[in-house]
Design a binder for these strands. Structure first.
Lengths: 193, 193
DNA sequence: GTCTATATTCCGATAGAC
DNA sequence: GTCTATCGGAATATAGAC
């Protein structure tokens, strides 16, 4: 993939997380990259093509995390997950789920499908990690791992939203509560950056 | 307050919940109300004025809920809260926190302040209800009610986001998990509409 | 208080040269 | 693959008549 194309996707990803899909323009990408908006249209004829590409990359990122952490314990996988969100929090960036799901009904159908696929993929990974950690005795929760994954993602997603408005410390307050609920013996500050 | 003004605010509220603040236009309000966009500008010179008015109404709504449920038990207050969200869920509408916090950094400062005020007000109400319900022995949780309120709001907010993408039943799955965690002896389906 | 009319700006998108 | 140039449309917003 060409550098320009990669840079466009990378910057679009950042803009989606910081300002939302409907709030950024081709110009917001063209100016920092010092190209004309026609160059962006060359790679992504319509804005939704760019949106889909950003999600596609995220899907691959999730797959990589998944394959790259296969040999880790469930607990380590969860620390990895929480670490990713904490890093985003420090950068005032929300996650793609938190940014794209509120605007879901304004998207064209193909992009909606991609958003849904992304949500399912992330949830699946989290559920797997939770189940694994429970099997190791490092986590306790009742019910199915898929249901618990919904609550975990919910907390991660919302903590990024609320942190920006109410202050960064909200993230740790929320995550530590969640970890306590699941009887984890570690807290956010225990994760090495 | 004039009918037109009220109708504008009401429709704007709906559009914010369904499509997001940055995705709706004055025309989306003018057409259904059969007025010209100049009429909307008469009441709300700038779009942010309209946004602030919508939040203002929500703030008063929260205050009303609060005063109107003072004599209810904490448990009944929570059922009321969950019921409000469930009704929104059925209408495919997300809450204002879920819609406005992702776009927070695109707002002008006065509107950001209002968003923050709204978040704090809702959290405060939830914390109060949780504390009350805990005192009644109808709910169990560790730590401060304020921290727990963050998790409760997080689940309500996210369930609306995810329900639209993954299916309406997500709402009940998530809320029932949350209630189970707090050892509540009721579930979503027990709430009368 | 609502209208017509319009200013202004910005957006996504495309044609065609290089 | 990137550019210049431009189109068509939509957005927010305002002036001034009624």
């Amino acid at each position: 993939m060409s550098d320009t194309k990669e840079n466009i996707i990378g910057l679009a990803d950042e803009l989606i997380r910081k300002r939302g899909f409907n709030a950024f323009s081709y110009n917001d990408i063209a100016v920092p990259l010092a190209v004309r908006n026609a160059a962006i249209h060359y790679y992504f004829p319509a804005k939704s093509d760019l949106g889909e590409a950003v999600i596609e990359v995220e899907l691959r990122r999730v797959e990589e995390y998944r394959r790259g952490s296969e040999r880790l314990t469930g607990e380590e996988q969860l620390k990895l997950l929480v670490g990713v969100f904490r890093r985003n929090n420090k950068l005032r960036m929300i996650c793609l789920m938190g940014s794209l799901t509120p605007d879901y009904d304004t998207f064209e159908v193909p992009m909606r499908r991609k958003v849904k696929e992304m949500c399912l993929s992330i949830l699946d990974w989290v559920a797997e990690s939770l189940e694994k950690a429970r099997g190791e005795g490092k986590l306790q929760f009742e019910g199915e791992a898929g249901d618990r994954a919904l609550l975990v993602i919910s907390t991660l997603l919302s903590s990024l939203l609320l942190s920006r408005v109410l202050g960064t410390n909200i993230f740790e307050r929320m995550l530590d509560q969640l970890l306590q609920d699941m009887r984890a013996d570690w807290r956010v500050k225990d994760i090495k950056l």
